[in-house]
Amino acid sequence: MLEWITNTISSLGYVGIALLMFVENLFPPIPSELIMPLAGFTARANPDKLNFFGVFFAGVVGSVAGALVWYYPGKFLGEQRLKRWADQYGKWLTISSKDITKAKHWFDSQGSKAVLIGRLVPGVRTLISVPAGISNMPLLPFLFYTTLGSAAWVGLLTYSGYVLGSQYELVDKYLAPVSKIVLGSLVLAFVVWVLKRRRKKTRH
Rank of each mutant, 00 (worst) to 15 (best):
G78L: 07
K91A: 08
Q110G: 08
W92L: 15
D108T: 07
L116P: 00
Q88M: 05
R84D: 14
K98P: 04
K75D: 02
A86I: 06
S112G: 00
A103S: 14
S97V: 06
S109N: 08
G78K: 14
E79I: 14
S97H: 05
T101F: 09
K98G: 01
T94I: 15
Q88W: 02
L82C: 06
W85P: 00
I95S: 00
Q88F: 03
K102D: 13
R84M: 14
L77C: 06
S112R: 04
K104S: 13
E79N: 10
V115I: 12
H105L: 15
Q80W: 07
I95H: 00
G90V: 14
W85N: 01
G118A: 09
W92M: 12
Q80K: 15
D87V: 00
V115T: 04
Q110K: 03
S96C: 12
K91M: 06
I95W: 01
I100K: 13
T94G: 03
R84H: 14
G118P: 06
D108H: 07
A114G: 02
W106Q: 05
R84N: 15
A86F: 02
E79C: 07
F76P: 04
Q80F: 08
S109K: 07
W92C: 04
F107R: 03
L82I: 10
K104W: 07
Q110D: 04
I100T: 10
D87C: 02
I95K: 01
Y89W: 14
G111W: 10
G78P: 10
K102F: 13
A114I: 05
L93C: 10
I117W: 03
H105C: 04
I100H: 09
F107Q: 04
R84V: 14
I95A: 01
D87E: 12
T101Y: 06
L82W: 09
V115C: 09
G78V: 11
K75I: 05
S97N: 09
K104F: 10
D87P: 06
L82F: 06
A114K: 01
K102R: 09
D99M: 03
G78A: 12
K83G: 13
F76C: 05
K102Q: 12
D87T: 04
S96V: 01
S112L: 06
Q80R: 14
S96E: 10
K91N: 11
R81K: 15
G78S: 11
